[in-house]
Amino acid sequence: MALLDVENLEISIRFGHELLPVVRGVSFSVDENETLGIVGESGCGKSLTALAIMGLLEGSGVRVTGGRMRFGGRDLLAMSADERRHIMGNDMAMIFQEPMTSLNPVYRVGDQIIEALQQHRNLSRRAARRRAIELLDLVRIPEPDSRVDSFPHQLSGGQRQRVMIAMALSCDPKLLIADEPTTALDVTVQKEVLDLMLDLQKRTGTAIILISHDLGVIAETCNSVAVMYWGRLVETAPTDALFETLAHPYTRGLLHSIPAIDRDVDWLDAIPGRVPTIGEQIAGCPFHPRCPRAESRCRHEVPQPREIAPGHLVECHFPYGGDR
C-alpha cells in the first residue's frame, strides 16, 4: 500500500446555495522516495487538491465532497480534527509559492523554525536552536549560525524558500507538498532549490508532491506525472512514458505550447481557445472544445480513465498512440 492514496477525490465550491464540483474523479498515489508532479494551468484544481490533502480547505467555502484519501493506511477524511492536525504537523508539510508571505516578517527566521520544532517535538529551546541551525545548514544557507538570527526581509528570495523548506522538514515529514515552490524564483535559483529538494529526498526518503505549471520543472524532478485540466486528471503516467507517448491531446498541446530553448520553430503549435473558468458547464469531455481530435462522441460522453500501458492512465476517447 502506498503512503498516500487518493481515490476519486471530489472538491466543491459553494456558490450561493449550490455546491459546484471543481475537482472530480482525481485518483493517484505517492510512495516513499517518490516524487509525483501535478501539472496544469491556472484554475485546473491542482492547488485545491494539495490543500485538500493537507486538510487546509476547511472554512474557506470549499470542501471535499467525495472520494477517499488514505495516508499510511488511515482514512484522512474519517479522522477527527485533532488527529488531522497532528498528522499535518508531524507527517505532512507544505511549502508555498511565495515564501515571503508564508514567513512572519516580524520574527527572526530561527525563532520561526524553533517554534515549529517545539510545537511538534519535545525539545528544549537550546536543543531546538541547535537543530534549527542544522536545518539551515541542511538547506545550504551560508553561515547558518548567524543567519538563524536574520529577519525574513534580510534574506534573498531563494534563501527564504530554503528557510521554508527547512521549516517544512523540521519534523521529518513523510510527505512534502510543494505548491509552485520555484515559480517566484529566478531560473538559476530554481535549479538550486529543486536540486536541494531532491537531494533531501535521497537522504530522508520523503515522498514529494510537486505542483507546477511548468512541464520542464516536472520533467526534470518527478518520477511520475499527473496532468490536470479543468478539475480532472486527464493523464497519469511515469514521467518517461508520459513524455514519450503524450497520449492525451492536452498533454501534447501543453508541451507544444512551450517554446524550446534548444531548437527553433517558426510557429508554436498552440492549443486554440481559452482555459475554461470554474463555473462553466461543458458537456462530454472537458477538453473537446479545444481538441484537434474531438469527434461527436467527445461532445456527449465524458471519457473514463483507462490504462493504455501499465501505470499509464488516460481520460480520452481517442488518445494518441491508442487504437482508434
Partner: peptide, 17 residues
C-alpha cells in the same frame, strides 16, 4: 552558460504525430 544550464529540459521526445 549558467543561465542556459539552469533551465529544466524535457527529454527528447519521439515525434509521433
Amino acid at each position: 552558460r549558467r543561465l542556459l544550464d539552469s533551465i529544466p529540459r524535457i527529454m527528447p521526445l519521439k515525434e509521433t504525430s
